[in-house]
Structure formats: structure tokens, C-alpha cells
Write a protein that binds this DNA or RNA. Structure first.
Lengths: 118, 118
DNA sequence: ATTTTGGTTAAGCATGTCCTTAAGTATATT
DNA sequence: AATATACTTAAGGACATGCTTAACCAAAAT
């Protein structure tokens, strides 16, 4: 069974490689067979298969074989997992900046009240 | 010189590792020194330094040394690069689904007009 | 039936990643 | 001046990654 963090590992890991990112980009244009995915890439078919395996292990891509042709398609949900993690980090950082802003504001106000009471 | 794709490589690569992700999560709570980053982690200080180097090479984190203390902070812009790439993929996929939807709708309508003309 | 096509498996090799320990440097602190 | 602190560098080892080539298999075409 796969916890959230292990799944994130697999997802970002899958996205690390530029070949896999271009395979994903192609798949956003619609489903493709293994050889269609391989055509624009400057490497052997087995290499492409290995990239595909990584994409599938992260759940970013699913595939099924009919006859001798394997058709691959993107899974939109998996993309959003990584996106949500990034989004959460950005939100927390913004909250931190807000708190920092409030703090600085408080300091300023206290400084003014000191001046007033002088 | 660093092109967009190489930068994405470095960014996703940085995000792949669960230790680095937790360092990032900590940094969203505010800046931290190297030893503060190391404290919750079950590994040697040099190991943490190496993770920090990866985070810095991707631009996700910046740091500066004052006296003997190095203070690290997150760079919000770098996070958004990865986020934007993911977002773009999702958008393209949704557009694909829309076009597919239109196509199916067209098929249905043509089917009806065939029925009508029968 | 034979050959072609589309994919798959296996093995191996070069390189990269993630950690370690040992030793070092530069700033505080006492 | 001597010691402690905060980091830094270097070297190396275990394992992972990204390719390759050489078979191999099953569905389709001839």
C-alpha cells in the first residue's frame, strides 16, 4: 500500500526526466501507442518502455494492450497531486509573509506610540 | 546559461527527494539556519548540506552566511515554475477532453440527423 | 506458412544519487 | 590562548537511473 509521501516521491521522480515530461506533454494531446510515443524521441524502444514504466508506477499514465498495440493515456488526477503539494507550500509561505507583515506593522505602531508618549 | 527545460529538470529533481521536500516545508514557516534544518532530520550535517546544495542549484532556496551561521530562506518564484508546468499540462489535457467532447457531440447530432432523415 | 510489426525481456555498462566518516576552516565563547 | 560551535570539504561506498544491444513473443499482414 502506497502512502501519500511515497506517491509524491514517485510523481516528482517521474517528472524529473525531460524525456518523460515530453511524453506527458504529447499525451495531453490525446492517447498514443508506445511507438507513437517513441517516434519523436532519439532513443531505443526499450528505453521508451522503461520511461513508460516509471510514468505508470507514479500513476501519471495508464495503458492497456489490445492485440499487439499498447495505448497510453494521461491520468489527470495524478498531476494534481503534485500541483496541490506545490500550491500548499506557496500558501504557507504567503501566510508566513503575512504574519511577518503584521509583526512589522505592530513594531511600527509601538514605535509611534512611544514617540507620542514622549 | 540555463534554459527553461534544464531549470525544470533541476526543480523537479530537487522536489523528488522526501528529505528536501520536508526541508522546504520547514522553510515555508520562515528562514532557518543549516543546523535548524538538520535538527529534525535523521542524518549527518554534510548530508543536509548536500540536500541544501541541490535546493539552491534549482533556485528553490537561497542562503547567506553571516559570521559562522548560514541562514536559508525559500524563493517563492522557483516553486511557481514547476507549478506552472503542471498547470499547463492539466489545461492542455482539459482542452483535449473538450475537443473530444465536441467531436462526440457532433457524432451524436449527425446520428440524430440520420435518424431524422430515415 | 512465412514474414513483418509492435512490443517485451534480459543483461550489462556508465553515470548519478544519497549517504557515510574523517578531517578541515573560520567564528564565537570562556 | 584554548575550546566549542557552525559549517565545509573530501573521499568513498552502496544503490538507483538511463541508456544500450541482443534475443524473444504474439498478433497481423502477405
Amino acid at each position: 500500500m502506497l502512502n501519500q509521501n511515497a506517491l509524491l516521491d514517485l510523481t516528482f521522480q517521474a517528472l524529473t526526466d525531460s524525456t518523460r515530461r515530453s511524453m506527458l506533454a504529447q499525451l495531453t494531446q490525446g492517447p498514443a501507442t508506445v511507438s507513437e510515443l517513441a517516434r519523436p524521441l532519439a532513443m531505443s524502444l526499450p528505453a521508451v518502455m522503461q520511461h513508460l514504466a516509471v510514468l505508470e508506477s507514479s500513476g501519471l499514465v495508464r495503458s492497456e494492450k489490445v492485440g499487439r498495440v499498447r495505448t497510453c493515456r494521461i491520468d489527470p488526477q495524478a498531476l494534481s497531486l503534485a500541483e496541490q503539494w506545490l500550491n500548499q507550500r506557496r500558501i504557507e509561505w504567503e501566510q508566513h509573509l503575512d504574519r511577518l507583515g503584521d509583526y512589522l506593522e505592530t513594531m511600527k505602531t509601538e514605535g509611534e506610540s512611544n514617540d507620542n508618549g514622549k
